[in-house]
């Protein structure tokens, strides 16, 4: 409830600006639809020109077993990929 009040106050106190800037942070100015690796995270540039987490390789790793990394090779673009061929079956 407290966080809801903070959110409402934050948005309400900035009536002149984009509420997304208040709640989600400033735009990154990225190219919509672009993908990249940022450490062990795959990020996508949303239609609001903000980077968002598309895949978290740590989460994939914790649920799948093995070692997973953000891989920028291949036609699919950046994605989580097992570090060794047995990566998905080690769990």
């Amino acid at each position: 409830m407290k966080s809801l009040v903070v959110l409402v106050v934050a948005v309400g106190s900035c009536a002149a600006c984009d509420p997304d800037d208040v709640v989600l942070g400033p735009k990154d100015g990225c190219d919509v639809g672009a993908m990249r690796c940022s450490g062990r995270v795959v990020e996508a540039c949303g239609s609001d020109q903000r980077w968002v987490v598309a895949q978290d390789c740590d989460e994939v790793q914790s649920l799948s077993g093995g070692l997973w990394i953000c891989d920028e090779t291949g036609d699919a673009g950046p994605h989580c990929s097992p570090l060794d061929t047995d990566g998905g079956d080690n769990g």
Binding site: G33, A54, G74, A76, G77, P78, H79, C80
Partner: peptide
């Protein structure tokens, strides 16, 4: 793009 990136994973 997000769904396509999930395919190889």
């Amino acid at each position: 793009r997000i769904l396509a990136a999930a395919v190889p994973t």
